[in-house]
Amino acid sequence: TETRTFDSEEEAKKAQKEAEKQGRTVTITRRDDRWEVRFD
């Protein structure tokens, strides 16, 4: 599991799309003013 933090939802969604192309499961969580993206 890898976790990355982004400043914008746009960036988080971009990372999510990339990871899903690779067949990974992605979870996006809102953390205050940041977006946390978890790759499984």
Rank of each mutant, 00 (worst) to 15 (best):
T1K: 09
T1I: 13
T1H: 13
T1Q: 12
T1M: 13
T1C: 10
E2P: 07
E2D: 09
E2A: 10
E2I: 14
E2Q: 12
E2T: 13
T3M: 12
T3L: 13
T3V: 15
T3G: 05
R4G: 04
R4W: 15
R4Y: 13
T5V: 15
T5R: 06
T5Q: 08
T5F: 15
F6P: 00
S8E: 03
E9V: 06
E9Q: 05
E9T: 01
E9D: 03
E10L: 07
E10V: 08
E10G: 06
E10C: 12
E10P: 04
E10Y: 09
E11D: 11
E11N: 04
E11P: 01
E11I: 03
E11Y: 03
A12F: 02
A12W: 01
K13V: 14
K13Q: 12
K13S: 07
K14I: 13
K14L: 14
K14R: 12
K14N: 12
K14V: 11
A15W: 15
A15E: 06
A15Y: 15
A15K: 03
A15N: 03
Q16P: 00
Q16F: 12
Q16Y: 10
K17T: 11
K17R: 13
K17L: 14
K17G: 09
E18C: 12
E18Y: 06
E18A: 10
E18N: 07
E18M: 10
E18T: 07
A19F: 13
A19Y: 14
E20K: 07
E20I: 10
E20S: 07
E20T: 08
K21F: 09
K21G: 13
K21W: 08
Q22C: 14
Q22A: 13
Q22M: 14
Q22W: 10
Q22F: 10
Q22Y: 09
G23P: 01
G23S: 03
R24A: 08
R24E: 04
T25V: 13
V26M: 02
V26N: 01
V26Q: 00
T27L: 04
T27M: 04
T27I: 11
T27E: 05
I28V: 10
I28P: 00
I28K: 01
I28N: 01
I28W: 00
I28Q: 01
T29E: 07
T29Y: 06
T29S: 09
T29K: 07
T29H: 09
R30F: 15
R30Q: 10
R30H: 08
R31S: 06
R31E: 04
R31W: 05
R31G: 03
D32A: 11
D32Y: 06
D32Q: 12
D32I: 05
D32V: 06
D33H: 07
D33P: 02
R34A: 10
R34N: 07
R34Q: 12
R34P: 01
R34L: 13
E36R: 02
E36G: 01
E36Y: 08
E36D: 05
E36I: 12
V37R: 00
V37S: 01
V37Q: 01
V37W: 00
R38V: 12
R38M: 09
F39C: 05
F39R: 02
F39H: 04
F39P: 05
D40Y: 10
D40Q: 11
D40E: 15
D40V: 14
D40K: 06
D40H: 12
